[in-house]
């Protein structure tokens, strides 16, 4: 059995990890909501953010509060460009296509993932390098748990970013537009919302958030060309658990996955801890495709 102290420690660590997952997964959920595709290059946005932060902060010696937003902007710009150049055919009439819509989306985002990984591998190098620390404190006591200062600082920024996104989606015009297009693309367009601009916005946001996650974690997990693969897989799991395209669902599922992994590694099996989420993903897609909280979407 678990002692109370260990349980508390696992809970806090799991929740914090879950917050980081949330930063990744919410962008993926936004993209799925608006475009009905899975972005298989999502991990590479994370990777790009990690490099952007490391290079800007370490090489240019820029302070933290400039370097972190720069990483976000860099990811956002990349997301925007990707949407403008590659996602446009998704809105076109698909009748004449040699490849169908879903297949195109998988191939192009998969190809983009390969491209970015290899590009960074060649242009910067395959070795990992460490980013400058966010804070100097090495150990901080958080309630019952002892955590690394980096993790705590990253968690604080993550919470702030998530709160900003929530406010943006809830209250701003563009936030409402995003939600409207997610619910009904055609209806939203008829109501005068520029669905194409919303798609660009969503890709930029998703790119920015993933890049921010990469930047925040780069002092803990060194930047390397394939560093994004792991967080990407976690965010696929989360988006499925939360109900494809649901933002609150994705957030709750992030925290849950963080907890499941942190307790599962101790209680079930440390060796196979990375497979828990994947097994959950398959089970959910097969038996509860609407996710933990969602309602089953109408077909047709």
């Amino acid at each position: 059995m678990l002692s109370g102290a260990l349980a508390a420690d696992l809970a806090v660590n799991g929740l914090v990890t879950g917050l980081f997952y949330g930063l990744m997964a919410i962008g993926l959920a936004l993209i799925f909501g608006v475009l009905r595709i899975v972005n298989f290059a999502h991990g590479e946005f994370y990777m790009v953010g990690a490099y952007a932060y490391t290079i800007i902060a370490a090489r240019l010696g820029v302070p933290l509060f400039v370097a972190l937003p720069s990483a976000f902007l860099f990811g956002a710009a990349l997301g925007w460009v990707v949407e403008r150049t590659l996602m446009r055919p998704l809105y076109a009439n698909i009748g004449s296509w040699g490849l169908m819509r879903d297949e195109y989306a998988v191939i192009v985002t998969f190809g983009l993932s390969l491209l970015l990984v290899n590009l960074v591998d060649k242009a910067i190098g395959p070795y990992a390098f460490r980013a400058p620390a966010l804070v100097s404190a090495s150990r901080v006591v958080v309630g019952p748990a002892l955590m690394s200062g980096q993790k705590v600082a990253a968690a604080v920024v993550t919470l702030a970013a998530l709160a900003l996104i929530a406010l943006f989606l809830r209250f701003s015009y563009w936030g409402r537009a995003v939600r409207a297009v997610s619910q009904n693309r055609l209806g939203a367009s008829l109501a005068g919302i520029d669905a194409t601009a919303v798609s660009s916005l969503v890709f930029a946001l998703a790119g920015g958030l993933a890049a921010l996650a990469g930047a925040l974690l780069s002092p803990i997990i060194n930047a390397s060309p394939d560093v994004g693969a792991f967080p990407a897989i976690k965010s696929y799991v989360i988006v499925v658990l939360g109900g494809m395209g649901s933002i609150p669902g994705a957030f709750v599922a992030s925290l849950l996955l963080g907890l499941v992994e942190s307790f599962g590694a101790v209680l079930v099996s440390y060796q196979y801890r990375d497979t828990f989420g994947l097994v959950l993903l398959i089970l959910f897609l097969l038996f509860r495709p609407q996710g933990l909280f969602g309602e089953r979407g109408r077909e047709v």
Partner: peptide
């Protein structure tokens, strides 16, 4: 399963 759902399941 179709499209993105199939891709995610087989990837997992």
């Amino acid at each position: 399963l179709r499209g993105p759902y199939l891709a995610l399941t087989t990837l997992s």
